[in-house]
Write a protein that binds this DNA or RNA. Structure first.
Lengths: 126, 126
DNA sequence: CTACGACCTCATGTTGACTTGATGTCAAGG
DNA sequence: CCTTGACATCAAGTCAACATGAGGTCGTAG
């Protein structure tokens, strides 16, 4: 066994990120280097889970700064933040639904070019 | 009546964008200046609808370049593009749902700090 | 001994979607 | 006639989230 600490390359591999991205996360304090072995970073294994969370949160539109706040806030303020974000995500999903049906609508019309089609504005046929 | 063409300021007001943003859209060919009156841009009124579409599409994660393609492609390729985007949007919505339930889950746990909570990784309680 | 691969730092480049600043033009109102 | 406000151009700045490149350090394999 290689000790349970992970190198930056191992972290990168396990989460599907580049080494430089992981280094960046470290630099901005999103993750923490547990210790160094002759200058090289060694991470706690649970960093993998943390970074995976980061990636999922990013996909949902959170900035790295927001994610940092949510993950590490110890004052309890994160609950409020998460609540606000949830509202935002619900709105986002609603808009996404609108967009989806609108696109589906546009796609199923007979128009040659979308710019000339009114389905992207009104619900009536072209 | 002021003639039906709109100034850049009027466009900006109606879509809730800055004048410089509209100018930018013009510069990259996303919208078109119909004509100029002593150097000043005059737009077709339907530009408003077009820009509104642009904003909505942006909210759903399209880049301006993609939006341009979708709006103006005359070769019919846009249908395919829109189809691909629809698939993408569905995936996005699914991930959003996952994220929403995960966040809701995390929020409703008793943890002091999210980083120490495992709900963002597994479905079991903290 | 040397080469290699993985790591290091620090500085700078990249992309998208704008914004900001400097400087100039133009028509209308007082 | 002069000022004002809306417009114009062009260059450069901004922000996030990295990527890239130069130059140096390690430990190990051959």
């Amino acid at each position: 066994m290689t000790d349970q600490l992970l190198s930056i390359g191992q972290i990168a591999d396990r989460v599907g990120l580049s080494v430089s991205a992981v280094r960046y996360y470290d630099a901005i304090g999103l993750i923490q280097t547990r210790t160094r072995v002759s200058g090289k970073r060694r991470f706690d294994p649970d960093t993998v889970g943390r970074v995976n969370f980061v990636r999922r949160a990013q996909e949902s539109g959170f900035s790295l700064e927001e994610i940092s706040l949510i993950l590490d806030d110890t004052a309890g303020g994160w609950r409020e933040l998460v609540g606000a974000k949830l509202t935002e995500l619900h709105e986002r999903r609603d808009r996404l639904d609108v967009m989806i049906s609108m696109l589906a609508d546009v796609q199923s019309c007979g128009c040659q070019v979308v710019a000339g089609c009114d389905r992207y504005e009104r619900p009536d046929p072209c």
